[in-house]
Simulated scan of single mutants.
Amino acid sequence: MASRSCKSNNTVQCSASTKRHSEESLERPSKKSRTSPSSPSDSSVSSRPWIVTGESTTSSKRKSTADETEEGPRKRSRVTPIPAEDHRETSCGSFHNEDAQPSSDLEDHDVPKISRLAKAIKAAFEEKYVEQELLGKGGFGAVFAGYRRQDNMPVAIKHIHLSSVDIIKVPGDSGDRELPLEVALLQQANPPESGPSAVVGLLNWYVVGQEVIIVLERPVPCMDLGDYFKTRQFPMPEHEAKIIGKQLVDALIEIHSRGVFHRDIKMENILIETGSDVPRVRIIDFGCGTFVTEEAYTSGPGTPMYRSPEWIINRRYKAEPATVWQLGVLLYKMVHGYFPFNYPKNKVFGNLYVRNNLSNNCQDFLQSCLLKTLEDRPTLEILKDHPWLV
């Protein structure tokens, strides 16, 4: 499992602690700044981050993100009116909720009172969920398996240090509220009324002490696409890759249509449910995500081997072309067994090799996703109707 650590003050810094790809050595070290426009949310938020609890009404083994990214200005989303400046000025210690204890009661750093409240929130979490074995950990925190006591529903419980969490403002009926960016993205990508979704469901979230705890749906049985790939014929037969590719295109259209940009589509961030004859794709880990905007992004391009040529050339990229590139890299690796480009310069100057024993439609699909100029790449909607997937 990949690992990272993130720190959110005025910007968010992410550093990779996983095995480095050869591409990383040729790209300059960088910082990560997530864009953080906001979206409506149903989670409740309290007056201090160490006593926050929130819930989602929706119902995942989680992999972390390995990336090093470039610091840049936050972008304003077309799906929200909240200015980016407000997000940068957000303090992790200024959550508000009508049901929470008034902040004036805690102004003098009443440590015993804070401790009692934190213990109460933790007790509420433990009353509802049982935490079990570790699924993985890294600089960002840790993810545990678990289940919900009420009905034994499997869950994934993600612990993140508060200092690693980006906080955004979200408009609500009684004014702006503040909540973790990842929570806001999950709520918008998979709202309660949406029905079945490719995005794993957010169940609850809490802030206890210096930790944010996010409780997610955990499909069983399942494995991430990287592990699934290793269990199949190597490289994966084209007809199997096509089943996964079609679902991925549909899932990414769904996510983008709701104004969410995942930014880190790769094998480790895709779960494959294996309980039926046809594997089902689920998308996880929105920790490096942001909201869709028409403007170019200058930070957070995702895992090095999946970065697009436009990032290498001018440290800028756009949401849909970058997603299409990542999709192409992923599917290329599935049917070839290796990445299409081993070095950044090859993405810009090299030629793409595609196996000639693949069908013409498959070759064309991969080549169109991996066009070097972002304007030349097809949209996700065009890919949905590509002959290879029809």
Score class of each variant (00 low, 15 high):
H87M: 05
F144T: 03
Y228H: 14
V260F: 12
L134A: 02
E294A: 13
R88M: 11
G337V: 03
Q233R: 14
S38V: 04
L216M: 09
E27L: 15
Q367A: 10
R148L: 01
S5Y: 14
S197D: 00
L181K: 11
P112S: 10
D99E: 09
L106F: 02
R263N: 08
S46P: 00
L162C: 00
S257D: 11
Q247A: 05
K333I: 00
P344G: 03
K318G: 03
V335I: 11
T80A: 07
P102L: 02
E107I: 11
G289K: 02
V220K: 15
S15P: 05
A124K: 14
D385V: 03
E107Q: 11
G175W: 06
I168H: 06
D376E: 12
T11P: 02
I51F: 11
V130M: 11
V292K: 06
P180Q: 04
D108S: 14
F291G: 00
P196Q: 07
S17Q: 13
N357S: 14
I82A: 08
G175H: 05
G259V: 10
S47M: 05
L117S: 03
P29H: 14
S115Y: 13
V199E: 02
D250R: 13
T293I: 07
L179T: 03
T373R: 15
G175N: 02
T69R: 08
G93Q: 04
N342S: 13
S46L: 13
I213G: 02
S22K: 15
G138V: 04
P192F: 04
V278K: 13
K333L: 01
F125T: 02
V155R: 01
L352G: 05
K122L: 14
E268H: 13
P40I: 12
C362T: 11
R78C: 00
P37F: 15
D364V: 08
H386E: 01
I243W: 12
G139Q: 04
S36H: 13
F349C: 00
D166R: 12
G195A: 03
P279W: 12
S33T: 15
N269R: 12
G337L: 03
S194F: 10
L225I: 04
E70K: 12
A251V: 08
K122V: 02
S299E: 02
R307Q: 12
F95D: 01
K333C: 07
Y338G: 00
A2F: 15
D250H: 12
D176V: 06
G93C: 08
M153R: 15
H161Y: 11
Q188T: 09
R316M: 10
M236V: 13
L389A: 07
S41E: 05
I283Q: 04
I255A: 01
I160G: 00
